[in-house]
Design a protein around this nucleic acid. Structure first.
Lengths: 340, 340
DNA sequence: CTGTTAGCGCATTCAC
DNA sequence: GTGAATGCGCTAACAG
């Protein structure tokens, strides 16, 4: 009657210990497989634990032991984007391998929200953070606020802070795609880009310009659009380019949203005006089921997440101070012909 | 010199209190905006907190106050599936509204993993769980193990346990899609289904059979496949049906994987054999960019997540015991013509 | 208005 | 091999 039988309050180690007539330390040791306890006692304890359905409180354990929380914060702009959900899959995969869990934070690309989310995750005791930054303003990821919590940026490089990062080979991928179009004989290649203020925007433009330069072709501003990634804007820009007196014979889209826009622009184009070749950064599900052939720059988004999480755990386990590291995930060019 | 200046160990409330010559209680009250503290003192404390960059430890706070952790566990089979990542977006959206965070657990559709993940999340003190069950075996989600942690199932009903759930209108959606095909004059409609052992499999078949029955047509087993959702299997099944002496003139796919398989099967079909109409459960990105018209059963996956999280918080806040509730998310039929 | 005491659930440290 | 005392960082309950 003394031990509370309130079904609402969870069992504690004391409940187990009292029922067995041992001390909580004995239960604790049995649970963690520590030495210094008889084999018979351990069995008795574990049996009682199983019978009662007792589960240790990991929060209390962490508080006392001061060890790692085995918890990683993952801050993304929008999980609805397949790129980030696959990245999340990669992060979780590595975390589980290290016995850690993932705590989620979405920012909706709002730097203010990102700041608050990071603060909340830190207060909740994460061991580290994988962040897809919402903007160039990364001050809140600097050392003072974080104390010792390691951070890895994904899909963007650090700006004015010193942390690890994992990038995609934007330049190489775009360059390869542009080269492919050049190899097929195209000389007027339109680029549906992204704002230069975005890392991805400037890098992918660089790849495009580089390939042209290598082919001895100057960038023609009439064939370049650099608006924010939005299928409607891309569709309009593509239409405008195709209405030029000497329209491009091929188009290169800087991300999947832009590719979709271009697909719309090309769909109701009169047949007699001649075909327009299309290539785009980011793979597209069902790319092989479309009404026209498509070449895409593909990469493993989950690998970005895996690499980021790996950098985090390496740093966490490292005894010596590590310099900021940078990993780049390769891209591959994939042709999706129309077989019909 | 007494107060530790070790940069590695985070600041505690004591550090702040000592620097100010007040007690930790004063700091605590100031931080939580509690009454019973002078306005001047509060300002002084908050200024020092900001200057030092001190952040409270929410785990310790929760341990002492015994309040909710403001943490929800989200257990899904595979975040890489767009349906589940959108569901996650919905869950997080509602959580943030309630000041809670989401802790992730992927099961890879392995019931054993699901069990372990649930245990881990419980040990980490989640206030509730949203679970997309990996199987019919839901014993580990029963009351004994959970003590008082509420659970909401998503996309599947409880089997032998009493918990809330959020379902998709599988029957209604499939029935509407089948009706649409019937209205267009089709009489031989093939069904690329899923195993009856899956909730989704039996429900969607019911919708198909119901629509046929309402049209006075008997289900013909030659036109029905019920293998697991896999584009390769679906492609093969579709080819087999189309090779029948009196092949179906329309096909209905029970999920997006099967739709993809059917698309493949139809792609290299000779033109002279006549067109085959296609409808499928689950929307498909770029459905309007395919080489053929497609009708899909669409629904808001994020809404499934929002509804699940809402049920959780309602129950958490409820003072009276609630009966298990069941919410159903509506579907809509969307036509994707080929405009080209 | 402010401080003191005690203890959340557990593990470290030291007795025995 | 086992147990008692102590404290992780914080706050409830009470004192003043």
């Amino acid at each position: 009657m003394s031990t509370h039988s309130d079904p609402a309050s969870p069992l504690t180690m004391r409940d187990v210990a009292e029922r067995l007539g041992v001390s909580t330390m004995t239960v604790s040791r049995a649970l963690r497989g520590q030495p210094g306890i008889g084999e018979a006692t351990r069995k008795r304890v574990l049996a009682e634990v199983a019978a009662l359905g007792y589960r240790p409180n990991k929060l209390a354990r962490g508080l006392r032991s001061g060890g790692p929380s085995e918890l990683i914060g993952l801050v993304v702009t929008n999980l609805g984007n397949p790129f980030y959900s696959r990245l999340a899959v990669g992060v979780e995969e590595v975390c589980v391998r290290y016995g850690a869990r993932v705590m989620l934070g979405s920012t909706s690309e709002d730097p203010g929200v990102e700041r608050d989310v990071v603060t909340d995750l830190l207060e909740r005791g994460v061991d580290g953070l994988v962040v897809v930054p919402a903007s160039h303003d990364q001050g809140h990821l600097a050392g003072e606020r974080l104390r010792d919590t390691p951070v890895v940026l994904a899909a963007a490089p650090p700006m004015g802070i010193e942390v690890d990062c994992v990038l995609v080979d934007d330049v190489g991928g775009t360059r390869a795609a542009c080269r492919e179009l050049l190899d097929r004989g195209h000389r007027r290649i339109g680029f549906l880009g992204l704002p230069p203020s975005l890392w991805t925007g400037s890098e992918r433009f660089r790849g495009y310009a580089l390939a042209l330069e290598e082919a001895g072709i100057a960038v023609d501003e009439r064939y370049v659009s650099r608006e924010r990634g939005d299928s409607v804007l891309a569709e309009r820009a593509a239409r405008a380019m195709l209405a030029l007196p000497d329209p491009p014979t091929a188009l290169l889209a800087a991300n999947n949203r832009n590719t979709v826009g271009v697909l719309r622009a090309l769909r109701d184009r009169p047949e007699d005006k001649g075909p327009v070749a299309l290539a785009g950064f980011d793979d597209i599900e069902l790319a092989d089921m479309l009404y026209l052939p498509l070449t895409v720059v593909s990469y493993d988004a989950a690998e970005v997440g895996r690499a980021a999480a790996s950098l985090l755990f390496e740093r966490q386990r490292s005894t010596v101070p590590l310099q900021p590291r940078r990993r780049t995930i390769a891209t591959t060019l994939v042709d999706h012909p129309v077989s019909r």
